[in-house]
Structures are given as C-alpha cells and as structure tokens.
Nucleic acid binder design. Sequence first.
DNA 1: TCTATTGTTCCTAAATTCCGAACTAACGAA
DNA 2: TTCGTTAGTTCGGAATTTAGGAACAATAGA
Lengths: 130, 130
Amino acid sequence: MRPLFHPSIDDVTVEAILHALSDPVRVAIFARIAGSDCSQSCSNFLTVSEKAVPKSTLSQHFKALREAGLIRGERRGVEMHNSPRCAEIERRFPGLISAIVNAHKVQSAGKPPPLPTAAAGRRKAPRRRG
Amino acid sequence: MRPLFHPSIDDVTVEAILHALSDPVRVAIFARIAGSDCSQSCSNFLTVSEKAVPKSTLSQHFKALREAGLIRGERRGVEMHNSPRCAEIERRFPGLISAIVNAHKVQSAGKPPPLPTAAAGRRKAPRRRG
DNA sequence: TCTATTGTTCCTAAATTCCGAACTAACGAA
DNA sequence: TTCGTTAGTTCGGAATTTAGGAACAATAGA
C-alpha cells in the first residue's frame, strides 16, 4: 500500500481546493471533518446526506481532499484518521475555507430536510454497468 | 442561435460556482470581469495568462460561468457584453466571491511573472489530435 | 492460523472536456 | 441586394476524468 501524499501548503492551489469542494459528497465530508473536534475515519461517511457512497468511490474522494491539501490522513491500525488543514489554508488563503463552508451551510439550510419516505424518489438513478 | 440562459439567484449553487472557478482560465476570466467597471466582450480573452485559448473553448467557458450564475451575458450587435453578478451572489453567499478572488490574487502574486522568452517552455504541451 | 474490518487498487463504462471545422448572426460597404 | 468581416455558437470525435464493482492488502482479534 502506497504511502499517503500530502502537498506542502505552498503547493496548494485555489483551483485544486475549489475543484475538490465542487462535489456535493466531498464538501459534505469536508464540512463534517472541519466542523468536528476529533478526527474522522473514512467509514463514517459510507452514507452522506442520506445517500450511500460505495467505498471505492469514498476512497477516491478522500484522496482528492488530501491531494488538494484540505485534509491530512493518518493510518492508525486498520483505519484512517482524517483531520482538516484549515489553519494552514487560512494563513495562505484568508477567509476562503470559512466562506465556502458557510455558503455550504446556507445552501443546506435553504432546502427542506428530505422526508425519509420520499427520499428514494429524489435519489439520482444508479448507473447500470455492463 | 439559442437565447442565453441565466439561472435565478436562488437556483445558484455553491457546487456550480466552485466548479466553474476551479478552472484556471475561468477564474482568470471571472476575476477580470469582476474587477472591471465596464462589461467585457468574450474576444477580450482570446489569450488568458499568456496562453492562447481557442474560441470554441472560450465560448464553453463563458457558458459555464453564465450557467453557474457568476456572470450575465447580453448580446449587443455582433458582440457579447459580460458583467459580473457579484452583488446578487454576495447576498446569497456572503463573502464567498471575494474570498475566492482574493485567494486567486494571492496565488497569482506568489508566482513570479513569466519571462516572455521563457514562457513557451512552461506552457502546457498541446494535446495531439487524430 | 482463520475471520472480520478498513481502506486501496484495478478495470471498464459513462460522463465530461477540449478544440478544429463548420456554422449563424449582425454589421458595413459597394 | 450581395459580399466580406467580425463575434460567437454548435457539431463531432478524441482525450481525459470519474464512478463503482471486484479483487486485493493490511491490521487486529480469536
């Protein structure tokens, strides 16, 4: 298993951050990691916003967040501990992360919480494979 | 020619904004439109950050910015006038746009201005087509 | 050992992006 | 009117990126 790659803060780009956070699942993951005071393991996110996320996809999402410089991952035993790099990013790009997380909150607050029984109908149809 | 589509401000999403601005050419375009006091035509951006942008690509970039709700385009005669929708977005997502534009400035300031003679070597190699 | 748990890698299909070529639309001149 | 120019769009196909199932690797406990 390959060691985890984390960019130095000076190599972190706005483009990479915005791209990483332009995915609804990834912002949701990041918002929760950034908002928590203890590190989160990947498996805490096997469902995100009522939607199941396959673990291979989840792994890719975490890789994207790590390589954008948004989180730091550390393997501890069988699981991974993920923590935000907010402080570093704040020094490099003041106000960026909080504005994005805030906007995400505004948007989440704007749409009513999905009713459990109606949720299935709103879910994106699964893609069928060969 | 199809009429231009502009989302209502309430339909504008953080994800769409971040995705639109996660492209280096598009942030550069948007930063210039947002920073100018007069509207800008598309053809002003046939070269962006010393790099030529094919006009079909440019057209797609403007479409992406419009449909993300970041700019408003208006056809006047043969050309298009593009203006930012910063005020509306600021009301919906306070601080978001300015943080991103600021971050983009920080990043641009960080890298030294490319020397004209050396610029060609740093350009991304063009993809070869069939 | 064997088994369970957590996460990664591989592989292929689907989606997205890029950009040259062909096109449309507005304008001015003859 | 028709021709030519300019500004931008659309089309089509190749390249790139993404999604997720299956197989795998690594750790821990029994």
